[in-house]
Amino acid sequence: MSQKTFSIGTLLAALGMLAAPMLIFLSAPVEREMGFVQKIFYFHVPCAWLMFLFTFVCAAGSLAFLVKSSRRGDQVAAAAGELVVLFGLLVLLTGPLWARKAWGRWWVWDVRLTSSLMLWMIFVAYLLARQYGGPAARRLAAGLAVFGAAEVPLIYVSVNIWRTIHPKTEVVRTLDPGMRPAFWTSFAAITMLGLLLFALRLALERARSDVEDLYLATED
């Protein structure tokens, strides 16, 4: 990403971040049942979307690294893996805040909650392997990312079977038209933020591997 694109992106994200809270708190109607707590939804859903987006980015990068020994793929995967954990953490923190009000408990073993938690743990393991396993653990980490992405539907199905045997709280809501501008502004701003973080992190990872190459070159 060029400097100019990055600056424009930053500007857009900043404007979105300013506009979104105003729309969310001033113009969007207060939800009848949930009241004020429903506002979490505007942050929670975009974070969850980014978590899943970066899961597949990380898996694709890891696959390129494994199959073609692509260094670029490894760098992309490293940057995306960290963002999965970051946005996953935001999802897992905002979720219980809402659940406390909706279901009366902080944590419910619901399909989406459990699946997100399992996926998040796989990517925490990914970061741990990269961080503490030495250079050879990159293949292990890449394998984890690929298996993790392959498991997303399986985890979902398994928890779904588990939870349909038992009674389950269904919370299905359709979005009120008045909430749409606030939601999509927030969605766009947070997505932009995620992409900018990704670009920054990727640039850092590339600079780091360039430095490694230079070290190796001077040692020869």
């Binding site: 399992m118 741990l128 396993g133 292990l140 394998g143 984890l144 298996f147 993790g148 498991e151 985890i155």
Partner: peptide, 23 residues
């Protein structure tokens, strides 16, 4: 098989294996 040249092998196996085999 990927653990062969990894540091902290024992811990890494558990850390990587458990979340994946939850289903």
């Amino acid at each position: 098989a990927t653990l062969m040249r990894t540091r902290g092998r024992d811990v890494m196996l558990a850390i990587a294996l458990y979340p994946l085999v939850v289903p």
